[in-house]
Nucleic acid binder design. Structure first.
Lengths: 188, 188
DNA sequence: GTCTATAGTGGGATAGAC
DNA sequence: GTCTATCCCACTATAGAC
């Protein structure tokens, strides 16, 4: 049943990648329809509100994809320190292979649109909220006190996002690896 | 002598703010000349290579401004934990007043242009390098071992950038404050 | 559901007068 | 150093046929 991938899905997948690589304003609807292989005429049928709506659904798609990666990564070790550390190292390794040409999930869209589209800003806010919630849950399950688990969820998410931004700018995964290295200090 | 602010300086200052608020691609040269008050005809005289050159010099201007803030902030306490913590809290407080409408320094330009302009990417790389160098220097002066000081400089810079990004998206300085709160744990 | 054509706007950049 | 006019291009969005 995965065989039949409809135009809407193709548009969202392609847009997600292009928004990540190039940002929101640099990515045109022409490029999205062309690279997706979806029929040119179908965009405004599936997304009657145009580019903004497509971007919102793309952010949600990316957020779901990233959330699943976080969830799977954190399952690999019961110890939260090992689990989170391993997850970040895994991200860093993928970064060298693919991600350094794929940009940073959501970040560019968030920065470009936070002041001009509140609905798009909220989509990004929800995405970040989900990410930190997953880290917080892992810490709660491991017996961390609730307030501390919530605070650390925010901080871990911030560290990873920042390290992604710097790594992408440098074209080099060192910041991600160094953040991973400090996780035991932070979580002790 | 500060009285006579020439057109070039006005263009760079205005461009720096607009690139921060709106990003690189959303900011037009018309808007920059108009809001700067500089003569419309002067842009390509001062920046013969066009928008890219203006952006590079704007990134350098912003980087210098931010570096001075970091330097001044870190001087206020000899204890590096107090100094860095106080600096981040100060950033967080300014964020509520002004910065939440000013965007995140450099970040949007870095994300939007890293893959399409290597010279602009390098300007952002240099800026981030300067920031982390200032944190590393503070730690070295306080007796931290060299390797650890360098690693922590990268990590502190990443944390702050990430917290800025999330704070900006949320319209709320909580992530910055929580990062500040964890500094003693990280630096102990 | 899809397609084509096009309206309408704004972008970056250049030429040449002053 | 500055100004104006202009070129060409890309964009978003809409209308209307199929």
């Amino acid at each position: 049943m995965r065989e039949k991938e409809n135009s809407k899905t193709k548009l969202i997948k392609t847009a997600s990648l292009l928004f990540q690589q190039q940002g929101y304003h640099a990515t045109g609807l022409n490029q999205i329809t062309k690279e997706s292989g979806a029929p040119k005429g179908s965009l405004y049928y599936h997304f009657p509100e145009g580019k903004e709506q497509l971007a919102i659904e793309s952010v949600q798609f990316t957020a779901k994809f990233v959330s699943e990666r976080i969830e799977d990564g954190l399952k690999k070790f019961s110890d939260p320190i090992k689990a989170i550390q391993n997850f970040i190292v895994q991200m860093a390794e993928q970064f060298c292979e693919e991600r350094c040409k794929e940009g940073v999930p959501i970040a560019s869209v968030a920065l470009e649109t936070a002041l001009i589209s509140d609905s798009l800003r909220q989509a990004c806010q929800t995405a970040y909220g989900n990410f930190q919630y997953l880290f917080t849950e892992k810490l709660l399950d491991s017996g961390y006190e609730e307030t501390r688990a919530k605070e650390l969820g925010v901080v871990i998410n911030s560290m990873i996002e920042g390290a992604f931004l710097i790594s992408f700018t440098l074209g080099n995964n060192e910041p991600l690896l160094l953040v991973a290295k400090q996780i035991p200090v932070l979580l002790q």
